[in-house]
């Protein structure tokens, strides 16, 4: 595949980099990344990956755009209110970069759908907002040996880690089970600064890009935490867990399953919620 003059100009700032170059840009153009959740994290991820020329980007979310999303979900505009988030995201991504193929999945990602969904992608990104989805994505990716980026954001904080099969612990090694429903606050109850999605989502996009071009060190075996109030980043080493229920030596989890989503995290009247079941 030869670059067109337009592509050379569009991707010039990548191609100029020694670590990317023409080869790396081709890897990006041939790369396939799935983003689960088109919300606070998913929005910047989708924008940067589309701009970077990642060839095929899947985006999964059941919801429609709501006014309360616009404080942080920068891929959607006021005119998109009521539109399916995946459609709104696709339109913005293709307006930025027509090179990119955007696959939309307006579905609730659950145990029944996730294995087929992730199958065709090189790298998966968790941009969901509830523990049930985060554990489901972890388990499915471990079972299918897919690398993925996990992240969570809340108030003025955020954290992320990257799983690569055989290269470090999974999310379940660190947090064995979801906390009981409503034990830990979510953004919906506790709030979040919109820019937090930008900070952490951009870091997730960076992990996907590094994975695709095969350069640099990923956050495997590390949890990167960010506190916006103290402006402190910390990279915490994560031990593995030999008895992990999904990636350990004798796994008890051999297929994905659904946890119950806490009642207060379910879609409320007139509100929208990433990846929540339809009620």
């Amino acid at each position: 595949m030869a670059f067109t003059n337009e592509q050379l100009e569009r991707y010039s700032r990548h191609i100029l980099l020694k670590e990317v170059g023409a080869k790396g840009q081709k890897k990006l153009l041939n790369g396939k990344v799935l983003i689960i959740g088109a919300g606070g994290l998913g929005a910047p991820i989708a924008l940067y990956l589309a701009a970077a020329g990642v060839g095929a980007i899947g985006i999964a979310d059941l919801d429609t755009v709501d006014l309360s999303n616009l404080q942080r979900q920068v891929i959607h505009t006021t005119a998109d209110i009521g539109k399916a988030k995946v459609q709104s995201a696709k339109e913005t991504m293709q307006a930025i970069n027509p090179d990119v193929q955007v696959n939309t999945y307006q579905i609730y990602v659950n145990a029944a759908s996730i294995m087929d969904l992730i199958q065709d992608y090189d790298f998966i990104i968790d941009g969901t907002d509830n523990f049930a989805a985060k554990f489901l994505i972890n388990d499915a990716c471990v079972l299918q040996k897919k690398p993925f980026s996990h992240a969570g954001i809340l108030r003025f904080g955020g954290q992320l880690m990257t799983y690569v099969p055989g290269e470090g612990p999974c999310y379940r090694c660190v947090f064995r089970e979801p906390p009981p429903p409503d034990a830990i606050p979510t953004c919906r109850q506790a709030g979040v600064v919109g820019a937090m999605g930008g900070v952490i989502g951009s870091l997730q996009a960076m992990e996907a890009i590094k994975f695709l071009i095969g350069k640099g060190d990923l956050l495997t075996g590390k949890l990167l935490t960010y506190d916006a109030l103290t402006m402190e980043f910390r990279r915490i080493k994560l031990p593995g867990r030999k008895d992990c229920a999904v990636c350990g030596e004798h796994p008890s989890i051999t297929e994905p399953f659904d946890y119950e989503v806490p009642a207060c995290d379910l879609k409320a009247e007139g509100e929208s919620h990433e990846n929540s079941p339809e009620l």
């Binding site: 670059f3 003059n5 050379l8 100009e9 010039s12 700032r13 191609i15 100029l16 170059g21 023409a22």
Partner: peptide
């Protein structure tokens, strides 16, 4: 510039 060098590099 920068396509001059970009093309050379490619």
């Amino acid at each position: 510039c920068p396509v001059t060098f970009v093309k050379t590099k490619v």
